[in-house]
Simulated assay, not measured.
Amino acid sequence: MSDTTAAPAVPLIHDVPADAILTVEDAAIAFGQVRALKGASMHARRGEVTAIVGDNGAGKSTLIRCISGVHAPDSGRITFDGHEVEFKTPHAARDAGIETVHQNLALVEDLTVWQNLFLNREIVRGVGPLRLLDRRAMRSRADEMVSSLAVNVPAVGSRVRRLSGGQRQAVSICRAAGFASKLIIMDEPTAALGVQETARVEELITRLKSEGHAILLISHNFAQVLRLSDAVWVMRAGRCVAGRRTAQTDGDEIVGLITGARAGDIPVEAA
């Protein structure tokens, strides 16, 4: 006789835990006739790596831009660190403790490492109109930031254009982690890197997690998601259609949820 016992359902993570640092509820936004988000809901916990996956056009980038203050959602609610927030600009999100490592890294090649670390955050001394950049303080602080994360970066006086792809990524992550950030958003942090540089960046992500940072990871690399994340949210057609604890799912289920071969836990409107 065949065994007809049903496999236990994979626990969902829609119920927001007490230690959630970020909660997004029914976020929706449209650009003209295009509805980029159609009521997306998710959360991220303190001291964890939370992955967001989905096909191109699923809404991942729009969602993180709403979280990081680039876009203001048309409706819905975002709660961060216990407070409902409405970030009008990326600077407002940064001031609240949200840092974003963009896929293009947002580094200025002709500036040095320390200058990039303090770009738009320059330390100045003096009062009134007699205020000067404190270059010594910024270089010293940059040395501390780089050494504390064990980042494989040359001297902080090196120009970014001379750095490898992995070193540039490390500078961008170091900048995000070095200013008392509570949540670090990473958009495809290893997409353009080789095997060794990818491993170094993944080690850095693990280190940041061990130090208590919450990390929101957007990645098309499912093996990387399964290695690094504690929870994963699947987006399709502008919504988070499923949430899983990573230890209780696998690549086949994630692919099925992304493609629609497996039904999500939240109904999705036809595209």
Rank of each mutant, 00 (worst) to 15 (best):
L193I: 00
D250E: 05
Q169E: 05
V127K: 13
A237Q: 13
V201W: 07
K209Q: 15
S148E: 13
Q167E: 15
R139P: 12
A247I: 07
A237Y: 15
G157W: 10
A137Q: 03
D134L: 11
G194V: 08
H213A: 08
Q196R: 11
D187I: 00
L208R: 04
L183T: 00
Q248L: 14
T249D: 00
F179A: 06
V124D: 00
R244Y: 04
E211S: 12
K182S: 06
H220R: 04
R168G: 11
G126E: 06
G126D: 06
R244H: 08
M235Q: 08
G157F: 08
V127G: 06
V151H: 03
V127P: 06
R200L: 10
Q224Y: 09
M145V: 09
L216C: 03
L204I: 08
P189H: 03
K209E: 13
G178N: 02
V201G: 01
V124Y: 08
L133A: 04
I173E: 01
D250G: 12
R245Q: 11
R200F: 02
K209H: 11
D250K: 12
R161W: 15
E202N: 15
V225S: 06
G243I: 04
L217H: 03
V225H: 06
G243F: 03
V124C: 08
L193H: 03
W233D: 00
N221K: 14
G165F: 02
A199Q: 13
N152E: 14
R200S: 05
F222R: 00
T198F: 11
A137K: 09
S140C: 05
M235Y: 15
A180P: 07
Q248S: 09
R161N: 12
V241C: 12
Q224E: 11
K209F: 14
A214L: 09
A242D: 04
S147T: 14
G165E: 01
A237G: 04
A231T: 05
G166K: 00
R141Y: 03
C174T: 15
D143C: 13
Q196P: 03
E202C: 05
D187L: 02
E211F: 10
R161F: 15
C240P: 09
G212E: 06
V160N: 10
V201S: 03
M138C: 07
L133C: 01
Q169W: 01
S158T: 15
T249C: 07
A177W: 01
F179P: 14
S158E: 14
S219P: 05
L149E: 09
E197W: 12
R227I: 00
R136F: 12
S219K: 05
K182I: 02
L183M: 08
V156E: 06
V156G: 12
T198K: 05
A247Y: 04
M235V: 09
M138V: 11
G243V: 06
S172D: 07
Q169D: 00
V151I: 13
R175H: 08
R227F: 02
T206Y: 04
E197G: 09
S164N: 06
L183I: 05
R131C: 10
R227H: 09
R168V: 09
A191D: 08
T246P: 10
N152Q: 13
R125G: 09
L133S: 03
A192S: 14
A237F: 15
V151Y: 04
R136K: 14
A142V: 12
Q224H: 07
V195G: 10
L226H: 08
P154I: 14
G157Y: 08
L183W: 02
L183K: 01
